[in-house]
Write a protein that binds this DNA or RNA. Structure first.
Length: 606
RNA sequence: GCGCCUGUAGCUCAGUCCGGAUAGAGCGACGGUUUCCUAAACCGUAGGUCGUGGGUUCGAGUCCCGCCAGGCGUACCA
């Protein structure tokens, strides 16, 4: 089904063309105020200005040409030249019925000619547990992938990429850390200073026999950082270990593989807990691009773009300036010969465009990396690796802040681990369920607290405009009132309880109805909102801004709550009862689907 | 210094890309609603120099220029 907005747009355009205004935009929008009808066309005033004609007279001419009698009441001209449309209840009813008959897509058409799209998100580091710093990328990226996947339709054109940090010096560091720790365990608090080099250190313990979990790995990593400060040779040992790994030494490689496995398993437990669709298949980390890095440099050199500056290999791009006003380079190879993240990102672009055949690549990272991506994109274009048919997009987002308006930390100043955060969310939700509905079964309480707790964290994040920072506030996100996950889930549970109480057979209900009537204002309001779902999906897919969806769902849930209190369903006369049941059905589906695109679960009871 | 982002009701924020009608929500405050499908709800009231000064326009929260405040970034971390 074509969105109502688009239908009206077409009709207005046709009418405008008929009075000599072909090519001018119709600017059809939903009205902000119900007194002006449901939709309005604002394009007439612009056209009048262009033609130097009287806007109200022009509007009259256009309205005479307008053919909208099937869907709207007689359009009205208002103010300086707005055309207002009020949709006919019977037309709305018919359309709603059509949407109800499409349980898969809810009457939302898939986009045409959608591009193969890579969504790069989450990107945690090996050897460290995921923390709040990964929260936004992970859930926003997941939402973008879900929305585009639905909007693009079958077959899927969305490729998820988890660009994990699994290479570089930190890999050597965890290796050194693990050995030091193992030695300490064997010989008490013995000082490791005597070893003096990686060669001696690694000889003490067979790397392949080491066993560790993610907590140990992380702790060891921190310990190494401390050791480096007291024993300078440790830093060299880390470099040697890293070098051995890069050379493919079997022992270091095996250790590295195990560390990756342990870390990734921990990440995937978090994804599962969060309900994020990101699998091991989607992992394509820095190490993957390792042997493609020299090629990046070579190609820049071939294109004549490579310049040496202060010992580093750089690409200079127009429009980027440093502090001193000098040209700001994109460094692709450090003076010591090592590659850095710009190099890896460039190699990744080439891989995605060249081998994954991506036509659109979306990077979901915090806004501090904006400049980095601007430069990387510019460099990739300058080198000719991407042409104008490929869209590289950075979706920047703000930080998660604590109540003090500073980056979110624990009381002792540590980074907040995602595991603990999510567990606490569920725990807090559980406490509320216990208070509100102590009679539910334990199993149900668990299910509810899971959905509500995790949903609250995600919803709170997604309902903010991406670019702004937001303050992490348990009480606010778990509140039942306001634009929150629990409010939305509650609205859904209330609809479902109607079907449960009335023992409604949905197939039978659907089979029984060839028509639908909308009479009460609450019914009409609900129907109009339900029919806007497609417009919303399109807007979210187009702008990549999930809060458009949360805003819509909130409005929908409010409209339903109002309908629910004012229009009894099960107690209504048979015909009215069925019309209302259909409204309920579509409401439930839309909330479930919309929350689904946001990666948030619904529950049948709460 | 330069660049980017942000500044809208007591608080949290939509609306700014693409200019349209009397600037919208939620929370909090105040008042009302429960013999009735989940009151984790609903209905109502109060509350705004849209940071600020200019400009463009029939029309500016929205576009342009200046200024103020905060955050972030700004050559070998990611």
């Amino acid at each position: 089904m074509k969105p109502i907005c688009d239908l009206l747009e077409e009709r207005v355009l046709a009418a405008m063309a008929a009075v000599g205004g072909a090519g001018a935009p119709a600017v059809v929008r939903p009205t902000q105020d119900g007194r002006f009808g449901d939709y309005q066309a604002n394009g007439v005033m612009g056209l009048a200005k262009k033609n130097k004609s009287n806007p109200r007279q022009l509007a009259e001419q256009i309205v005479e040409q307008l053919d909208v009698a099937d869907m709207c009441e007689q359009p009205e001209i208002a103010g300086p030249g707005f055309i207002n449309f009020r949709l006919k209840p019977e037309w709305l009813a018919g359309r709603l019925l059509e949407a109800v008959r499409d349980p898969q897509r809810l009457g939302v058409d898939a986009a045409e000619n959608s591009p193969v799209t890579v969504v790069d998100f989450s990107s945690p580091n090996i050897a460290k547990q995921m923390h709040v710093g990964h929260l936004r990328s992970t859930i926003i990226g997941d939402v973008i992938a879900r929305v585009l996947d639905f909007w693009y339709g079958e077959p899927s054109k969305v490729v998820r990429q988890n660009h994990v940090g699994d290479w570089g010096l930190q890999m050597g560091m965890i290796n050194v850390g693990a050995v030091i720790q193992a030695l300490k365990n064997l010989s008490g608090e013995k000082n490791v200073q005597e070893y003096g080099s990686w060669e001696k250190l690694r000889g003490c313990i067979p790397l392949s026999e080491m066993v560790f979990n993610i907590n140990e790995l992380e702790w060891q990593y921190k310990e190494v950082n401390i050791e480096i400060k007291s024993d300078p040779w440790v830093e060299n040992a880390c470099r040697e270990a890293t070098l051995n790994l890069q050379k493919g030494e079997p022992e270091e490689t095996e250790f590295w593989k195990k560390a990756c496995e342990v870390s990734l398993n921990a990440c995937h437990e978090i994804y599962e807990q969060l309900g994020v669709k990101l699998g091991l298949d989607d992992v394509c980390g820095e190490s993957f691009y390792n042997d493609r890095l020299p090629g990046v440099i070579e190609d820049f050199a071939k294109e004549g773009l490579l310049e040496e500056s202060e010992g580093a290999q750089c690409v200079f791009l127009e429009g980027f300036k440093s502090k001193e006003g000098e040209p700001l380079p994109l460094i692709v190879q450090k003076s010591d010969g090592a590659f850095l993240y710009a190099t890896t990102d460039l190699a990744a672009i080439r891989y995605r465009v060249g081998e994954l055949k991506a036509e659109r690549v979306i990077y979901v990272t915090d806004s501090r990396q904006k400049l980095h991506f601007e430069m990387v994109f510019a460099a990739a274009k300058k080198a000719g690796w991407v042409d104008d048919s490929v869209h590289l997009e950075h979706v920047p987002f703000g930080s998660v802040l604590g109540k003090d308006n500073r980056p979110f930390k624990t009381r002792s100043g540590e980074t907040v681990k995602l595991k603990g955060l999510l567990d606490e969310a569920t725990k807090r939700a559980r406490k509320i369920v216990e208070e509100k509905n102590p009679e539910l079964s334990e199993e149900l309480k668990d299910e509810i607290s899971q959905a509500v707790g995790i949903g609250a964290v995600k919803y709170a994040d997604l309902s903010n405009n991406l670019v702004s920072d937001y303050v992490f506030d348990w009480d606010k996100m778990l509140a039942m009132e306001g634009n929150t996950a629990p409010y939305m889930q509650y609205a859904y549970a209330r609809v479902q309880s109607i079907f449960r109480k009335g023992q409604i057979d949905i197939d039978e209900l659907l089979g029984r109805h060839e028509q639908l009537e909308l009479n009460e204002p609450e019914e009409l309001q609900l129907a109009k909102l339900l029919l806007r779902y497609g417009e919303i999906v399109e807007a979210v897919a187009g702008d990549l801004r999930p809060h458009i969806m949360t805003g819509y769902l909130f409005e929908l849930a409010q409209a339903f709550s109002s309908f629910y209190t004012n229009c009894p369903v099960l107690k209504a006369d048979e015909a009215v009862r069925d019309y209302r049941l259909l409204l309920c059905l579509q409401t439930a589906r839309t909330i479930k689907h919309g929350l689904g695109l946001l990666g948030i679960e619904v529950i049948e009871q709460m």
